[in-house]
Amino acid sequence: MAATADTGPAPPQAAPQKAGGLRNDPRVQMGGQLLGLAVVFAWCIFPFLWMVLVSFQGTVALRDANIFGGPFTTGNYTRVFEEGFMWNLGNSIFVALSTTVISILVASLAAYAIARLPIAYKFTILAGTLVATVFPPVSLVPPLFVAFNALGQLNTYQAMIIPYVALTLPLSIFILTTFFATIPKEMEEAAKVDGATPFQTFVRVVVPLAAPGVFAAAILVFVYAVNEYLIAFSLASGDPNVMTVTVAIATLDRVGFEEPIGTITAASTIVSIPLIIFALAAQRWIVSGLTAGGVKG
């Protein structure tokens, strides 16, 4: 399945065989690779690790730059659970899944039209797509509030899902357009010869071949939807039943000016779990998608 991945332009494996020299010593190469990986790990992990460790220590961790000092406690997690945070997490996952499915479906259609179908003014259409994503979010909120209030849709799931879909469509469309454009036309032709309608061709041939793009877009949309705060707060914070995690984190219990860093980091750690699961699952499809699609096509 993952055959493609193995032969990609991977710097370590594909390192050129130059004659002689230190670089050819496999141990040196190995060491270099490990060093490089260690840098990547440190860069990515340390801030995240800081967050996780603070969540188990609370403010004690803010005393000393040594974040491994302890004492450790799970008290912050207990508090987060007691505040009904898991309900909010359920809301977030629901909103994000809905957003992802709708955004990717709608974007696939549009992207296919742009990349493949004979329509006029493609440049203008692509440019028009971008419009939805270039407005400063703070400026977007007041008019959105007016609209959703007029429709009586404040504090509902759709008050988040609809704006999220609209705001993620440009990215999804651009990603998918580039991927559809790279699919060899011959494969579609072949399907047509076999008597498939354009729509069937799209569903059976094009979408599977574009799987890496589809899943890359899906991850990005899903993560965006879970992490969005401004719209979730402005349009849907009035009803605790639909409140999402980012808003819940902002309103965690506190006394006075206390910054409840322990519960904030605990809540953020909990949020990251479904995100990582989703990202890893979808990511496997980025890497294995092409081969799978190619076989079926």
Binding site: C44, I45, P47, F48, M51, V223, V226, N227, Y229, V245, T246, I249, A250, I264, T265, S268, V271, S272, L275, I276, A279, L280, Q283
Partner: peptide, 10 residues
């Protein structure tokens, strides 16, 4: 992917 899943506000 870890950095990407942390909400921006956090």
């Amino acid at each position: 992917l870890l950095p990407w899943v942390v909400p921006t506000v956090i």
